[in-house]
Amino acid sequence: MTHPIHRNPITAVESPALGVTIDGLTKNFGKFQALKNVSFSVEPGEIFVLMGPSGSGKSVLLKHIVGLETATAGRVLINGQDATAEHTLERIRIALVFQAGALFNSLSVYDNLALYPREHRFGDEATISDKVMRALQILSLENSARKFPSELSGGMRKRVAIARALVMEPQLMLYDEPTSELDPVMGATISEIIATLKDEYHVTTIVVSHDRELALGIADRVGILMGGELVFLGPPASLRQPADPRIADFFHPRIDLKNPRFKNLET
């Protein structure tokens, strides 16, 4: 099998795309089991969308991939290397777009993007400026370079977070709820950006979301976590008529206003 070639969105340098393997991942917080023996693989260059209701363990799993959490059991392999091993983040560039953006509030948009290349000495200030402005152009943010995060709308903050991730020249892009708290138009724009980055640059992408439209629209494959267990793994097309009633309930929730529970809400 030939791996797709990842083309760096900023430098256009080509390299084999990365694959990710989650192998028997279990995470306990005290007595609460957030992840229960979860296993799956993400193929190089694909968009994998991990879905599930709130509290199902999606974001916890994402944190394991970048080493922000340590597993109780199991492991995460990135191109065959243990993600928790020392210096993994020095060898492999992984960018995580946080749910709330996690932008540095004391820095301007430009400095938010320039921080990574400056700290890792990617070149002189002119080279860094080129990279930053290129990333801002990709996300149509070039007019916001001098603004501070507090001056941006929710959608713009998400785009800045994606632009900051692009400046890292990542081989693996992770998104945590990229379309949450956004209006449908902005949600669709962000989905389009994720799909474009994958189509043009073959960046291996893992998206954690409970946005059905996003999953059905851009995913190559979908995984569904419920109560810390992986209950579905497959192409998005098979989610249109799910056989599992739990998945059907999640995808097509029915609200029965005659349910006695709603009686309590009546005034």
Partner: peptide, 21 residues
């Protein structure tokens, strides 16, 4: 506040140790 709003996590994923900067 940086820790609560995940700015510290962002630094860690960028391989920029908070102790350094």
């Amino acid at each position: 506040s940086m820790k609560v709003y995940q700015e510290i996590d962002a630094l860690v994923t960028m391989n920029i140790p908070p102790a350094r900067i």
